Simulated assay, not measured.
Amino acid sequence: MNEEINESIKGRYLSFFLGKEMYAAPIENIWEVNAMIEFTAVPQTPPFVKGVLNLRGKVIPVIDLCCKLNLAPTTFNRYTCIVVMQAHTRQIGVIIDSVDSVIEVAKDNIKSNHSFTEENEMKYISGMGNIEGKSLIILNIESILSDEELLIK
Score class of each variant (00 low, 15 high):
73 P>L: 09
90 R>K: 11
108 D>Y: 05
133 G>D: 12
53 L>Y: 11
57 G>P: 05
80 T>V: 07
63 I>H: 01
146 S>P: 02
95 I>M: 11
62 V>N: 01
119 E>Q: 08
78 R>D: 15
94 V>Y: 02
148 E>T: 13
50 K>F: 02
140 N>T: 04
71 L>W: 11
87 A>E: 00
142 E>Y: 08
51 G>V: 01
125 I>C: 06
145 L>S: 04
65 L>M: 14
64 D>S: 12
149 E>T: 12
91 Q>C: 15
119 E>M: 08
131 I>C: 09
135 S>I: 00
118 E>L: 09
95 I>T: 00
108 D>F: 03
88 H>G: 10
113 N>T: 08
92 I>W: 00
119 E>W: 00
125 I>P: 01
81 C>D: 05
135 S>T: 00
137 I>Y: 11
69 L>E: 13
140 N>D: 13
148 E>L: 13
115 S>P: 04
148 E>A: 14
139 L>H: 10
117 T>C: 14
80 T>H: 03
124 Y>W: 09
137 I>F: 11
96 I>A: 07
129 G>D: 04
145 L>F: 06
135 S>A: 10
67 C>W: 06
132 E>K: 11
123 K>M: 09
113 N>G: 04
86 Q>P: 07
76 F>T: 14
66 C>R: 09
110 I>Y: 02
92 I>R: 03
84 V>P: 06
98 S>K: 15
109 N>Y: 08
145 L>C: 04
82 I>L: 08
84 V>M: 05
144 I>K: 00
116 F>D: 03
73 P>I: 04
